[in-house]
Design a binder for these strands. Structure first.
Lengths: 339, 339
DNA sequence: TTGTATGCGTTATCAG
DNA sequence: CTGATAACGCATACAA
């Protein structure tokens, strides 16, 4: 490996000077500078980020800890995150929390040991240990996807609005399409977003004069099979729902598959779902959905984190982005004008 | 920050002993060990990976450099990669090459500055500079997705078989379904996989007694719009093809959308495509595809890389995984027995 | 305008 | 079985 001393020797200057020309951290004679730059060229020197980090305490690295399977998030959010971070000169370390408290702890420990300058975390259903771990080390932290409820912890967070958009979906089912037996297939129980979406479901029902307590509600999202089983148990009811609220993209794909098996393709049974798909317009059934602004979420997470890093004293912010209502045909609604 | 010296002070031993306890690198008296472990507990000490890396020269970090937009790869491969790496005690740094030589260089420079123990790279269309950069630094390297052609460079690589599977797709079109005017919408020109898939297309045509030189062939994959334009120009031919080979998942989604606009839903026009979708069975048209084993590809990349790291002297290996032929209905073939 | 000395937190060498 | 010491490659306080 070629180090700064090697460059210094070739350029016949001190390592200090080399460091300063690289970092532009003090004035140096143009001739000297040229000698140094030439020496760098000749030796093929590349700065060692590790040594630099040890010395400065900053790694120019951001940690992203989330689960890879749930949510549409993974691919798109990671992509947006990497792009935004790279644009600001930061690299990305990725770890999978598997949405379990134990793996979450491990993921954060790994991130911490790499001395990341900040962490973006999609908290598991029981993130207390993780929070403690993080606050003890005072690492800048931004929560993503799941924004903690009311007695707000002092932490930055970015996520999407869930309650009203789901209520809006229910309203669509009731008001526009006249359904009165509406069921919900929710994502993994315990996760904050699930709690909020179920709340939105109940609120939507109430507003429509329907009874939330008698409305069919099942939790899926653990696996394809478990989701399928949940849906089937709902459909096996004496009076099965005529319309379905699907709580996220994972649940949606499993549900459509299960419905197909029962020869119940939307809009034969009406569905609305959270999360959109890039291919939603090209393939049938064309699903009516709430589309999350995944790119903005990833970019905003980086944005909040960098601001926190640069300005640790400021008040934490919670950002709620708005999903977009995509009306298509899974409720039987508009004429199929695109096919 | 709490360091090893702090722990040592609390445990009333030397830092050396603390280090040895942590790394189990030499025998230490059970009592001493307990004292150290207690001190670690009390102080909440966590090892500093940066300092450790500087000293040992190993970062326990793997770099993954690929483009996030092209290919089905991104999400799934990254996921499999992270899982396999984590299981072996390695973290993952992710960088986007944007499939351009310039960004590729930058991505690798970043990885190198983080002193990753090895790099997995999906090479751009002109990766020479990247190779030079890497071999100069002697970083263990594995190529992913795109396996370099014949005069094999001395480098590990993992990818999927392209030529024969695409030829097989063409055969399906000709032999099973009697098409003789077959066009191909290929992915981004220049990429090795594209070259191979186009070669497979031509070979398939030849075997069927068709003339490859007069067969319509367009390159897409740059963007949704560009892909759409390519397809439309092919469909605008005096004698447009009655069957289409779609070169990857990106091209496929754009193509189906464009076909829809022309009221040409498969199997009205026959299509076969490379890359499968998790939702392929639930949504119409149900596409006949070649499905890549994305999980295995990601896992194998890590596997090859770790073997190279542990055993630098061995002969490089090129691994070609087999895609799976998923016969569905986009050629009008089997009765719709699943709907 | 430039150089010397020191230390970041860890592990390896050597000595006890 | 344990400890003192040096070194990894760099950035900075201080000195010249």
């Amino acid at each position: 490996m070629v180090t700064m001393s090697d460059v210094a020797r070739v350029a016949k200057v001190s390592a200090t000077t080399v460091s300063h020309v690289i970092n532009k951290s003090r004035k140096v004679n143009p001739e000297t500078e040229k000698a140094v730059r030439d020496a760098i060229e000749v030796t093929g020197y590349a700065a060692d980020g590790i040594a630099r980090s040890l010395r400065t305490g900053r790694s120019h690295t951001l940690g992203l800890a989330m689960t890879a399977i749930s949510n549409t998030y993974f691919g798109d959010v990671v992509h947006a995150f990497e792009r935004t971070a790279a644009a600001r000169g930061y690299s990305l370390i990725l770890t999978d929390t598997h949405d379990t408290p134990e793996r979450e702890r491990r993921a954060l420990r790994d991130l911490l040991s790499h001395r990341v300058d900040g962490i973006v975390l999609a908290p598991s259903a029981a993130p207390e240990a993780a929070y403690a771990q993080l606050t003890r080390r005072k690492v800048p932290l931004v929560l993503i996807d799941r924004v903690p409820p009311k007695p707000l912890p002092r932490v930055d967070a970015v996520g999407v609005e869930n309650v009203e958009p789901i209520a809006r979906l229910v309203e669509h089912l009731v008001v526009t399409h006249g359904h009165i037996r509406i069921g919900m297939l929710a994502p993994q129980a315990g996760i904050i977003t699930t709690v909020e979406r179920v709340a939105g479901f109940r609120i939507g029902l109430e507003r429509a004069g329907l009874d939330p307590d008698t409305a069919p509600l099942e939790y899926g999202g653990e696996s394809f099979e478990q989701t399928t089983a949940s849906l089937n148990s709902m459909l096996g009811l004496p009076k099965p729902p005529t319309a379905l609220v699907l709580g996220n993209n994972l649940v949606t794909v499993a549900a459509i598959a299960a419905l197909r098996k029962r020869h119940l393709t939307p809009p034969q049974i009406a569905t609305v779902s959270f999360d959109d798909f890039p291919w939603a317009d090209s393939f049938r059934p064309r699903l009516t959905t709430m589309s999350q602004p995944v790119d903005e979420i990833g970019a905003m997470a980086v944005q909040l984190l960098l601001e926190r890093i640069e300005n640790p004293g400021t008040e934490p912010r919670q950002v709620r982005l708005e999903p977009t209502f995509m009306v298509r045909e899974s409720c039987g609604c508009p004429p199929d004008d695109l096919s």
